[in-house]
Design a protein around this nucleic acid. Sequence first.
RNA 1: UCCUCGGUAGCUCAACGGUAGAGCGGCCGGCUGUUAACCGGCGGGUUGCAGGUUCGAAUCCUGCCCGAGGAGCCA
Length: 433
Amino acid sequence: MAIPWIYIEDIPKTKKEEIELRGWLANKRSSGKIVFLIIRDGTGFIQGVADLNNFTQEELEKIEKIPLESSIIVQGKVREEPRAPTGWEIYLSKVEVIYISQEYPIQKKDHSIEFLMEHRHLWIRSRKQQAILRIRSEIIKAIRDFLDERGFVLVDAPILTPSSCEGTTTLFELDYFDLGKAYLSQSGQLYMEAACMALGKVYCFGPAFRAEKSKTRRHLTEFWMVEPEMAYWDWQDNMRLQEELISYVVQRILERKRRELEILERDIKPLEGILPPFPRITYREAVELLNRKGIPFQYGDDFGGDEETIISQEFDKPVFIHHYPAKIKPFYMQPDPENPDLVLNNDLLAPEGYGEIIGGSQRIHDLNLLEEKIKENNLPREAFEWYIDLRRYGSVPHSGFGLGIERTTAWICGLKHVREAIPFPRQIYRIYP
RNA sequence: UCCUCGGUAGCUCAACGGUAGAGCGGCCGGCUGUUAACCGGCGGGUUGCAGGUUCGAAUCCUGCCCGAGGAGCCA
């Protein structure tokens, strides 16, 4: 009978003793007449042991010389072994080299971030990077499961767009045949507003592009965002959905990605308490909080990274900040009926200093008010004609938000920089690899 | 765009005006339970680029290039 090919993560579940593994040589050690091979196959790592019982002296010397990251197929008996790094090992009977690797540039030593970013295509093979990418994948799955279970419809927004959503200074521009300029989307929101009037509860999930010359630990020029939009929901319904979504995602990761969080040495205590309700403070209360802390902050300014950190450190859960001054927010946000200088919006700041992960609001549903705002903001009316149209045909109050995938991943994984939260980051000074 | 820091061996760094060095990786050898294994040996350089000061420049000066940390803006 053929020896079955098993993935490393399935080893504890399988009852097979004699198995085959297909993977790569992640590390090796040798002690003369015994050779230890650390094998990875994408699902995990396991130590393989080769000695003179199964191999000749000559074969053992060959095995000892296989370069790191060579692709190998091995066979042997698996067993629990306390001396092995993962508690399991495979006692090898056959080692077949598929492809001999050249000298692998990434060592098990410290590297500069510049070097690692230059070798991102190889860096993702490292244990921690694999753990991050697995968690990212599960976060996306959890978000989609949450929304799908609640009757939301996935509606894909276009990437090539004729105009901007939030402003005109931060767009990537390209030529679009004879129709002039087109731009890479910086948000699918306006299209989701159209879609929610068709389908009730919708969301889009996709990349967003910002040509901002931002160079911080929280910025990428290309990032992924999920943007739900709900007809007939007001700004408070909106916040309830947000806190339920974030809690669902965090609890899912704690439940299914424990091992990855351990590899990342993430302290999971702060994550365990992420359950509704989240604290809610107004913009004015946030300003007062800063001033009480001795931070000279003017009412009417927008919060910077430092301010967000200080505010979020006051709470052990994500915190909503709502009712911002209309002046510092985009044109489409619904003014507060009790004070039109404020808008019915909210940001959500992640704890532990991770800053803004969500921006959301109730949208303007009144035709005249929207037209007024477009005029006030000197936006090209022609480009927004279809958007204005939504207010002509059965307009209703509606709300939505955008959740940044990389910032959320960075927070849950405990990363210092969002560039590790996406497979191939795009930054102002880096587009390679 | 602005401020700050940096660029020396494949990698991480030292040498700070006087002959460019170490650790790791690689290669050769040793070791039957290693955990970033360990021990011995051997190779490895246009000091980011261009110019200047000096008897002499990796080191001082000017300009440029490329990164990193941060700010503004934002998810």
